[in-house]
Design a protein around this nucleic acid. Structure first.
Lengths: 189, 189
DNA sequence: AACGCTTTTTGCCAAATGGCAAATGATTTC
DNA sequence: GAAATCATTTGCCATTTGGCAAAAAGCGTT
């Protein structure tokens, strides 16, 4: 729980009562590897914070290929924003890539926090904007590079992730086949 | 000017005085094709709204190749967020792809609006979040597809843009050489 | 240690894309 | 309207990546 507030307080100040109140609305959630935090076709109804583990957001294209949009590591908020905000069905899966420990807030509790705690919306906005900008910055450079360069950029972007997740997920993130990525790895060493 | 407020008022309400006040801080700016709205190495000090024309955000990679991160069309706000917010040098150019008419706000006026107009920050946040989400949604699918699919997606994403900009910019957006894109176009018809 | 299961690597060949240069087409300028 | 300039298309060949299947390596279970 300390971990969560260390994170939150980087974006603004809260007094002890506010912190307690937020804490009182939170639930601990354990996800086993491969389990879903939220699913395509459903409406996302919770906001999560990753205490430990890695999640990924993925979807399937019209050829049934699995595509990883991004990974989310420890100490980040996780929410399918479009689905959660607009109460519409999501088109993506949010899946545990390793066993995960999370702190989650149910939609109604989250909304209550937003209405109750002065300044909470500003903090959440800062966190959201930062996360979205990070997504753009991480994803954009991948389009214009060859596969090797993309892999090297992946290593820079997600230094803590490489050795904890299967190669197939990295391949589906980089838009490369497993075999190609395997060959690329070999050539780099 | 009506165009600007039509846009803004989709995200929240403002009374006539507030609208006048915002208008009073605005300046009209004309950009010729190829001119810059903001530049790498400089700090972005203005927020713009595109009345007419197309801009693009681009940068150069370590091989000197020009890479287009995205296009911005009429009826959108334009600002190099990271640079503007944190007063740090930008790493990207924002360039007019066609002649453009814009309404711009200088940094200090923009900050004054934020402090003066109740609810303005909420509106700006909504606009920002939506724009960032759109960027992620537009850029993400491009990574995992072959060049033809990427071009078809480009057509979907930017239907109003294709015929108004040179092929080389589209190529640099899609991460494909001009020649390849030219061949792809031929094969599609 | 042996088995089954999953992940990663490899070989082979086909398809897609890049690099370069020349040809063609389009647009601007005088 | 001819010349100059810029944008696009095309040809040729090299390189990269994909597709598929088999082999090898890794892992957990018994």
């Amino acid at each position: 729980m300390k971990q969560l507030f260390d994170f939150i307080l980087r974006f603004g100040n809260l007094n002890p009562q506010q912190i307690d109140f937020i804490g009182s609305k939170s639930i601990t959630l354990k996800l086993k590897k491969d389990e879903y935090f939220s699913e395509a076709g459903k409406i996302a109804r919770q906001v999560g914070f990753i205490v430990d583990g890695i999640l990924r957001v993925c979807y399937y294209n019209n050829q049934g290929e699995e595509i990883t949009k991004y990974f989310i590591e420890e100490n980040n908020l996780v929410v399918d924003l479009e689905s959660f905000n607009n109460e519409i069905c999501s088109s993506a899966y949010v899946q545990a890539v390793t066993d995960c420990t999370m702190i989650v807030f149910q939609r109604k509790d989250w909304l209550e926090l937003l209405q109750t705690i002065v300044g909470w919306d500003t903090i959440v906005n800062k966190i959201t904007t930062r996360a979205l900008m990070q997504k753009v910055e991480r994803r954009s450079p991948l389009v214009s590079e060859d596969a090797t360069t993309r892999y090297l950029k992946f290593l820079e972007i997600y230094p803590t992730v490489v050795n904890r997740i299967p190669l197939s997920y990295i391949a589906s993130y980089l838009g490369v086949t497993q075999s190609s990525l395997s060959r690329i790895r070999k050539n780099i060493r």
